[in-house]
């Protein structure tokens, strides 16, 4: 794939003895929706941290839209079109949800004036938070915080959206809502990379699935096929990953 939007080349990272990435290669096309599964501690969140710039890899490159951003700061990657959520939500406690998305709209997307206001409001609305526009981050429930993570990422007008376990802890109708949202965002032309233990949510959304284990991709391709892969099944301790419900 010559014109990959996001390309990770030979990423390696160790925390002492713990290997979280071991020469990892990954390409995401401009209109792709990729799901990533893997056991706890496999290094999935670390992969996002290296992609987003919070974590410097020991070796390898991160290429965004043909540009090497390995040494580029987090905010510049965001401005270049990389939007991400954090697995453990990071709301701004003293800022309202609207101020939060407005911040991402101005700083991340570079929008100004009315454009920024509508972008901020739209992101909240899409994530079902419009009625909480004037509520501070520290007054939100966990579910609302997770939604705010997505809203903030959307408000920065990403070209690639990195979602880290946003479906965990959601009820079935809520998962369905979230799937609907991610599908809509993807349909708008945004590339999506979604880390998730709730496999059926991924299956409803992605057109490609990868499995991360031991700092490597042990499988990558058609979702159904990946889930049938003996190595993947082995990692899920013999259980059928497609039947793993809300974690």
């Amino acid at each position: 794939m010559a014109d990959a939007l996001l390309r990770l080349e030979g990423l390696s990272k160790k925390f002492g003895q713990v290997v979280v990435a071991d020469g990892l290669d990954l390409e995401v096309g401009p209109h792709e929706a990729l799901g990533i599964v893997g056991p706890n501690g496999a290094g999935k969140s670390s992969l996002f941290a290296m992609t987003g710039g919070d974590l410097a890899p020991d070796a390898g490159r991160v290429v965004l839209d043909g540009r090497d951003v390995t040494r580029t700061s987090v905010h510049q990657r965001t401005r270049a079109g990389l939007g991400r959520t954090y697995q453990v939500p990071r709301p701004f406690g003293g800022m309202t949800t609207f101020a939060t998305t407005l911040l991402a709209a101005t700083e991340g997307a570079g929008a100004r004036g009315d454009e920024a206001l509508s972008l901020a409001h739209d992101a909240l609305k899409r994530c079902g938070l419009a009625h909480l526009a004037n509520t501070r981050g520290d007054a939100l429930s966990l579910l609302q915080r997770k939604r705010l993570e997505v809203a903030r990422a959307l408000a920065s007008r990403p070209r690639v959206l990195l979602l880290d376990e946003v479906a965990g802890g959601l009820t079935e109708p809520e998962v369905a809502e979230l799937v609907e949202l991610v599908r809509a965002v993807h349909a708008d032309g945004v590339a999506v990379v979604w880390i998730e233990h709730v496999v059926h949510a991924l299956l409803a959304t992605v057109d490609r699935l990868a499995c991360l284990a031991g700092g490597r991709l042990v499988a990558d391709g058609d979702p159904e096929q990946v889930l049938r892969d003996p190595v993947v099944r082995e990692i899920y301790l013999g259980q059928d990953p497609s039947e793993e419900g809300a974690a």
Binding site: S73, R79, S156
Partner: peptide
């Protein structure tokens, strides 16, 4: 002003501020 949002965000969570595009 515009920088005020950024400053408040930095106050509350530096990591999230960066991810939102703030030059912290």
């Amino acid at each position: 002003g515009r920088i005020g949002l950024a400053l408040t965000a930095v106050r509350d969570d530096e990591v999230a501020a960066r991810a939102s595009g703030v030059d912290v």
